[in-house]
């Protein structure tokens, strides 16, 4: 399973943000997205996840292979940590293995209602979802927000050993160094021209 993108153009709110984007990520590899706020990192991840259609170009990976993780984790406050994870496992047709609780240091919290977790603990629970659903392509949007240094290291270790090491791949938008041996892609180079003829505004110009 590899992820190939060719000549991709994407829009946010009908306005082209990125044009002519091409890259490839092979199994076991990660790709770090760089670029200032508004460069289109989140939009690109949403397009790769199949949530939004691209303006043009090709994405060579089925959306069914991808897992998307945004700033919000979709955690239900009244369900316990285990119940939250079990739901995602059931929804994705996977069996829920308890070793995920160790990977993300959640074993002590397993029966706590998710609403009582701190921001960092919730974030760990949100990331543990990725371990539960077992998708080969991870599309991560700022995964380390509100994590402390130890948790960042723990997540990076999981990513390296349990995901990339097993032949998975990842596209990550992050400002925090994860210590991964991964190429970086600067989205600034692909910024769409203001004169772009794509997007829903173009018909009116």
């Amino acid at each position: 399973m590899s992820l190939r993108v060719e000549g991709l153009s994407i829009a946010r709110g009908g306005v082209p943000v990125l044009e002519g984007l091409s890259f490839a990520v092979e199994p076991g590899q990660a790709l770090i997205l760089r670029g200032p706020n508004g460069a289109g990192k989140t939009t690109l991840l949403r397009v790769l996840a199949g949530l939004a259609p691209p303006l043009s170009g090709r994405i060579d990976a089925t959306p069914e292979s991808a897992a998307y993780a945004s700033h919000a984790d979709g955690i239900k406050a009244t369900l316990s940590v285990t119940e939250n994870l079990r739901f995602w496992a059931d929804l994705y047709g996977r069996s829920f293995g308890a070793e995920v609780l160790d990977d993300f240091d959640l074993r002590a919290l397993r029966d706590r209602p998710a609403g009582t977790l701190s921001a960092g603990q919730s974030r760990r629970l949100g990331l543990a979802r990725l371990g539960v659903i077992g998708r080969p392509v991870l599309l991560l949007d700022e995964p380390t927000v509100s994590l402390d240094a130890a948790s960042v290291a723990r997540f990076a270790a999981w990513l390296r050993e349990r995901h990339l090491g097993q032949g998975g791949l990842a596209v990550i938008a992050t400002h925090v160094p994860l210590g991964l041996d991964a190429p970086e892609l600067d989205l600034g180079r692909f910024r769409a021209s203001p004169r772009s003829t794509q997007g829903s505004d173009a018909a009116f110009l």
Binding site: V15, P194, R195, D201, A202, F204, L205
Partner: peptide
């Protein structure tokens, strides 16, 4: 409506420029 859309499109184009 078309004029409104055109105005919006031109404004956004100017912003991006």
């Amino acid at each position: 409506e078309i004029r409104v859309r055109r105005l919006r499109a031109l404004e956004r184009q100017a912003q991006r420029a």
